[in-house]
């Protein structure tokens, strides 16, 4: 949390801190397959750092490990709450699910939001006022984000494919970045740290752009300054040097 001091308020020079009226903040969205482990770990991390954040899964169903590899526990997206999953698995075999970390994970998740949401069912731009209790919901009431971070290349592909199919009705650019994280608890923790670092780097650049004093701004020299969008590849490149084990892919897509 300490890493992300809200940027000093721009222009007016007032130092407001806290999520309500802090400095400029990019809005994030994290995505993995089941919206349980990796995306939720990073959702929590970004939310704890006061970023507006929502999260989704791209799978057809929520799949959690079961007693054997062929018997996963399967749930519906958008209809099952983390809490009900928690209770069901606890009654099934509390020892097993405690030992493999599933209960722990679900316990964390139910404190973050109600239940797993599916990317493909997300209606971008529809207000999300009913999600006000979710962690990180402050700032994403409008139902759009600036950056989507996926945790697996498969999910990135699904997101891009879905956005292409939607045909960009909102005319709004969105950076879609994949950070490849293996689907286990340990890697999710490491990946969550990496994603927070990435978010900090991106947000710093975006806030800098807005902080530039517009008074002396001369449109003739516009090309000499790099805008935020333009800096993104560079930021990811630098970030990749710091996190060589989390291979990244990026594109600029449209909502």
């Amino acid at each position: 949390m300490a890493q992300t001091q809200p940027q000093p308020a721009n222009g007016s020079g007032q130092n407001v801190e806290g999520p309500a009226d802090g400095g400029f903040k990019l809005k994030f969205c994290t995505v993995c397959a089941s919206n349980n482990n990796r995306s939720m770990e990073s959702h929590l991390r970004l939310a704890a750092a006061n970023y507006p954040v929502i999260s989704f899964g791209t799978g057809s169903l929520v799949r959690l490990p079961g007693p054997s590899i062929t018997q996963p526990n399967v749930y519906q997206f958008n209809k099952t709450s983390y809490d009900s999953m928690y209770k069901e698995l606890e009654s099934k075999d509390a020892r097993l699910y405690r030992a493999n970390g599933i209960l722990n994970m679900l316990g964390r998740n139910r404190d973050v939001k109600w239940g797993p949401e599916r990317w493909q069912d997300w209606r971008v731009g529809i207000p999300r006022l009913e999600h006000a209790k979710d962690q990180g919901s402050e700032g994403v009431e409008g139902g759009v984000v600036d950056v989507v971070i996926t945790c697996e290349e498969r999910c990135w592909d699904a997101v891009i494919d879905d956005l292409l199919n939607r045909g960009s009705p909102l005319n709004r650019p969105v950076h879609v970045i994949n950070v490849d994280i293996k689907d286990n608890h340990e890697e999710a923790l490491v990946g969550g740290r990496g994603i927070l670092d990435l978010a900090d780097s991106l947000n710093k650049a975006a806030a800098e752009e807005r902080k530039l004093n517009p008074v002396g701004f001369d449109s003739g020299s516009a090309s000499s300054r790099s805008s935020f969008d333009e800096r993104v590849p560079e930021i990811i490149g630098e970030w990749q040097e710091r996190w060589p084990n989390l291979p990244a892919v990026w594109t600029l897509a449209w909502f």
Binding site: L164, N165, G237, E238, Q240, E241, V249, T251
Partner: peptide
Amino acid sequence: MTPKSRVQIKSMEKTTRLLLVNINKR
């Protein structure tokens, strides 16, 4: 390649590919 150009090249390649795959799929 610099880290930046690496990101850019990878990104353009992947984006092009996904668009074409999307066209063929449709």
